[in-house]
């Protein structure tokens, strides 16, 4: 799958079709537990949202944006959930709020998340939405509305700057070894 983002310097921008889901979407809805017998992203992507809307995964195109309500990703800690979303083609998620384990997991596997209070209310599935991850600006081009995402918490910014948790851990153990 081709990388949908247009990289300009450090900026990461996304523009794609919005898919809207409601509040409290749980990780069982994102990827049902019966598919946790695999870690293959392509296979997981096929079953993404299967119990919520069986047609949705097939309609998502690479670069699309998921627009969610409150507490997105509640429930199970399965990292398979952000993996499935990313492999299904979701370039980034814009939600009103996130459940905490999902939030960490998404950054760890490289699925960008933005928190925005007012995009959800004006957006319908099928709208064209553009996101500038670094500036935190979001526009719904279909509705002609502009929105601002909450800044990344310091905690996540440090992790993102370090290149993700695995890269961070790699550097840390390399540093320890150099010292010993």
């Amino acid at each position: 799958m081709s990388d949908p983002d247009a990289r300009e310097g450090s900026a990461v921008r996304f523009r794609g079709t919005a898919w809207k889901v409601g509040d409290h979407v749980d990780t069982d809805a994102i990827i049902p537990a019966r598919y946790l017998v695999t870690t293959d992203p392509t296979e997981l992507a096929e079953h993404c949202f299967e119990d919520m809307d069986p047609a949705l995964a097939r309609r998502i195109r690479p670069g699309d944006v998921l627009v969610a309500g409150e507490n997105f990703g509640q429930g199970s800690s399965r990292e398979h959930a952000p993996v499935a979303l990313k492999a299904a083609g979701i370039a980034c998620v814009v939600a009103r709020s996130y459940a905490r384990i999902f939030y960490r997991n998404a950054f760890n596997i490289g699925l960008p998340l933005l928190e925005c209070q007012d995009l959800h209310g004006v957006t319908e599935s099928g709208d064209i939405v553009a996101v500038d991850q670094v500036a935190g600006t979001i526009s719904n081009e279909t509705r002609g509305t502009g929105h601002q995402a909450a800044p990344l918490p310091e905690f996540m910014r440090r992790l993102v700057e370090a290149g993700g948790i695995i890269e961070y851990a790699r550097r840390k153990v390399a540093g320890r070894r150099a010292r010993s």
Binding site: E79, I101, N105, N108, I165, Y168, A169
Partner: peptide, 10 residues
């Protein structure tokens, strides 16, 4: 507390 697989790997 619970975490995902990558955090646990770290």
């Amino acid at each position: 507390t619970g975490v995902g697989s990558s955090d646990l790997a770290a």
